[in-house]
């Protein structure tokens, strides 16, 4: 077996490409950062220079401020950074999300960031790329995590709304990606009704619209008189479903869309009366499928349940290594 590539390795700032002189999704401020996608544990402020897909750059302008040194790329465009060939490949996680393909001296490494393989009308689907080393997340790397088909879960939400004309539904969702994916899936299933938004989601939904993702009739809920709302769907950040803001919607049905909802104890912990098992991360079967698809003899495992995935990879005869990267929230969804 060839020795493990050592030209890409973790250091206290994050994942560092030595010959290229850049980091991927670094946790601390660095001179040059390649960013896989706009979630806050991957795209942080304070770097001197950023390279990301144009959609991710738009997200960063909104969240980190417009005055950073951003460079955008299209998917599949080739960049040469100090002799390292770099390409951004769709990861299917959220709008603009990318795997970063690095080639140097005949070796290929793919840093996949966060990814999924399931239906998402708001972003380009994951593309497997054959490589020598595949770096994978492990958020849902336990065999108990097998997400339900997202369209089936959205259909359950539509049924629940129809069955409860006197109660509002408060749906807690991650504001970047999950919210827009669920809205798009609702529209695909013919749900044309107004969807109300908590203030924290408004700008991100506008951004998606501007980048060409049609969301239909979505409005800030601050424009409505909360007391008169009945049988409506309101989207909000997960933390808002049980704070004082939520009280004005009366005896609402609290729902929550996340891969963690697969486990009943987690759904109860969230106080979700209608848990929806929808995730933007790969579940266990998708992780294993992807490892087959990329045909990499060596797999590096980052944030999440590294223990289970490293064990499984050994069973599959792959060389596996847990990268102890700091700064990624293992609860992130």
């Amino acid at each position: 077996m060839p020795p493990s590539p050592s030209w890409l390795h973790p250091n206290p700032n994050g994942l560092f490409c030595e010959p290229g002189g850049f980091y991927i999704d670094p946790a601390r401020p660095v001179s040059r950062a390649l960013i896989t996608h706009g979630h806050s544990d991957h795209a942080r402020s304070g770097h001197d220079a950023y390279l990301a897909t144009s959609e991710t750059v738009e997200v960063m302008k909104l969240r980190l401020g417009p005055n950073h040194n951003y460079q955008s790329t299209r998917y599949h465009e080739t960049h040469n950074i100090n002799g390292v060939t770099v390409r951004f490949i769709p990861a299917g996680h959220i709008l603009g999300s990318a795997q970063i393909l690095l080639e140097w001296q005949g070796q290929r490494i793919v840093a996949s960031g966060d990814y999924k393989r399931s239906l998402d009308p708001t972003c380009a689907p994951f593309e497997p790329v054959a490589c020598d080393v595949f770096i994978t997340e492990a958020t849902f790397a336990l065999p108990v995590f097998c997400h339900e088909p997202a369209d089936k879960e959205v259909a359950r939400l539509i049924i629940s709304i129809a069955q409860n004309p006197d109660r509002n539904h408060l749906l807690g969702v991650y504001g970047l990606g999950k919210a827009q994916r669920i809205i798009a899936l609702l529209r695909q299933q013919g749900f044309t009704h107004t969807i109300w938004l908590h203030g924290a989601l408004v700008e991100l939904c506008k951004l998606y619209e501007r980048l060409g993702v049609k969301l239909g009739d979505v409005r800030p809920v601050s424009e409505a008189d909360a007391k008169t709302l009945k049988g409506e769907l309101v989207l909000c950040p997960p933390s808002a479903t049980h704070d004082r803001w939520a009280a004005k919607f009366g005896n609402a049905i609290t729902s929550f869309a996340s891969g963690w909802m697969r486990v009943r104890a987690r759904a109860r912990q969230r106080g979700a009366e209608l848990p929806l098992i929808i995730s933007d991360h790969a579940d266990w079967p998708q992780l294993l499928q992807t490892i087959e698809d990329v045909e990499a003899p060596e797999i590096w495992v980052t944030h999440g349940r590294e223990d289970a995935l490293v064990h499984q990879l050994a069973l599959m005869g792959r060389k596996a290594r847990a990268l102890a990267l700091i700064g990624f929230e293992d609860e992130a969804e």
Binding site: L142, P143, V144, V263, R264, R305, A308, H311, Q312
Partner: peptide
């Protein structure tokens, strides 16, 4: 039907045997 190590990690996470078996 399940690898013992993966089963144990799963059971520890889920906290309930029936649910673990059902999901795994």
């Amino acid at each position: 039907r399940a690898d013992p190590v993966l089963y144990k990690l799963s059971r520890d996470y889920v906290g309930d045997t029936a649910e673990t078996v059902a999901l795994i």
